[in-house]
Nucleic acid binder design. Sequence first.
DNA 1: CTAGATTGTTAGTCCCACTAACGCAAGCCC
DNA 2: GGGCTTGCGTTAGTGGGACTAACAATCTAG
Lengths: 153, 153
Amino acid sequence: MIGVMDDDTVDRLRRVPSRLLAMANGHADRLVGGGLSGVGAHRWHFAVLATLADGGPASQAELSRRTGIYRSDMVAVLNELEQHGYVRRAPDPDDRRRNVISVTGAGERRLRELDALVTALQDELLAPLSKAERERLVDLLARLVSHHGGMPA
Amino acid sequence: MIGVMDDDTVDRLRRVPSRLLAMANGHADRLVGGGLSGVGAHRWHFAVLATLADGGPASQAELSRRTGIYRSDMVAVLNELEQHGYVRRAPDPDDRRRNVISVTGAGERRLRELDALVTALQDELLAPLSKAERERLVDLLARLVSHHGGMPA
DNA sequence: CTAGATTGTTAGTCCCACTAACGCAAGCCC
DNA sequence: GGGCTTGCGTTAGTGGGACTAACAATCTAG
């Protein structure tokens, strides 16, 4: 991650938005990544499970689009989820290129567990901000992201 | 099959702060990284030049601390900057372990060029936000970063 | 039917934060 | 002085995440 500099040094770098984003993202990554790996999970697992739970069964390519995970990486993620019984892969009878991915009961339980953990980690991440400030931050970031096209092309 | 879902569930992923941070950072990276590479530069070059210009000559280790760039990576960055004549490496007479790094005239010109470019890129990054909103975003991010302050272990 | 797009998959690239270890020099503390 | 610890610059290498290339199978449009 990008480190933090001395507090009394006022240089122009300190307020460059892209740099602040990189630093904040670094901390968030360590927090969330560390927390999830502590229970043998990965952010990708959470993203896929949550997407499936919210939008219903979908093909791998569709999941890729919704989560922003490349479909080449999606394979491994689904392998792991399937291996743990959190997810089911079934051939789509209407389109034999596709697999229909759906969550299992165990997957739903796992998602609830991960969801609670992720929520707690967000809370830790945003600790210095009030509730209103957190909402403002989320709102500003969401507007940035959606302005730049949301998901990877 | 689309049932009724509450908004929390629908937006579960889209509003997770760490995720928004990652996406926003991704876009920022592409923008700034792309823009800088277009003029044969790198964010690290800008960071080092700006730090030197603002804080005066410093050792490599000191530069590492101020910029957050690992001192192992700093070597290559300074090699490149030195090769282009933007920076000078001189042995520190008071501590023969150290190199004193200082900006050259060409380095100052290069910094001005990069600074203008980076500023323009920040502007593009923050395009959807008003001036007041940009300040709020920077402020919120800065508080996050400083709260989780500290160098990598 | 043919040409082109899409799907799942394998493989591999590139970049970046980060670690390990080295030889050397400085600053201790007795 | 002599030993010990710490900091320095440097080289090499790890690990993970974003991303691309290519392929066989399949679907879709013209």
